[in-house]
Design a protein around this nucleic acid. Sequence first.
DNA 1: CGCTAATCATTAGTGCACTAACTAATCGCC
DNA 2: GGCGATTAGTTAGTGCACTAATGATTAGCG
Lengths: 158, 158
Amino acid sequence: MTALDESTRETDDLLLERQLCFALTVASRSVVGVYKPVLERLGLTHPQYLVMLALWERSPRTLKDISDSLLHEPATLSPLLRRLEEAELITRERVPGNERALAVKLTDKGAALREQATAVPGQIRERLQLTREEVAELHQAMTGLIAATQQKPVSATP
Amino acid sequence: MTALDESTRETDDLLLERQLCFALTVASRSVVGVYKPVLERLGLTHPQYLVMLALWERSPRTLKDISDSLLHEPATLSPLLRRLEEAELITRERVPGNERALAVKLTDKGAALREQATAVPGQIRERLQLTREEVAELHQAMTGLIAATQQKPVSATP
DNA sequence: CGCTAATCATTAGTGCACTAACTAATCGCC
DNA sequence: GGCGATTAGTTAGTGCACTAATGATTAGCG
């Protein structure tokens, strides 16, 4: 490979339309944008919806547990949970026997909201005109990419 | 299909670990997280990097033009461009002959930063252990997804 | 022309998302 | 049993990202 080839390649590498990170952030924002009108009917934002999904699977659970599941900093979730408490979808109290931990628990209202939420995934697939299989393929691609970001940097590997 | 099958399927559809939107937002944040230490050496955040990519392709261009390219609201870019101006990477002035439009232009310092940026895409691929081909495949998948989000809702189609 | 409608940018306000700094509680280990 | 280190949450501060409202300019049309 000549020096000219190399510099041309590096120039092309900087084209906005070729950046995976650009396509990825746009896709993320765009898909969340599709959820927005759907979730508005439930009175939820998209990050709040993900927290509710976690709690519908298991409640009560600690903030630490939720932050591990969602791969979010506790500091991000703190104000978010405060707003869910204000909406009376969850309660926040200390864990008996471990006063450090915060027990986050669905209220009856929060648990009941699940009924309405069951329709959401189907509505999104409909809106995006995607089959379950296509969704699963994209999901797998994203999971692989996430795994790639979380491995140690190659230079740090002994 | 029985009623039981349907309700089971809807229950599964709400599992956090199966949500494309979840995998997508995590992937987006994680990949941006990989860029962070690399871009810190250039003094840029990731959104600022994307704006600079746009300007390295063409400068000057208007805010409106940039917001169309990045699929961002002008209101999002306004404060971002102000910070890039404070860093002396761009200038902001009105377009002669159209006082509504804002001409955003690279400074010499901003144009020179491109030198250092040429190394970024390769460093990211290295860090993620992805080939150009794998990046292209993922990019294509994201582009398809973006297109799906931007088509009209099916119910609104006559 | 002159007026109305459309266009472009900015500001205000809400909600994430992160880091750093801080507080409080618990664990471990002598 | 007490003391240092660790763990769990919260708060403060910065920077996106969006909507809605505002202001300024331009285009278009009778």
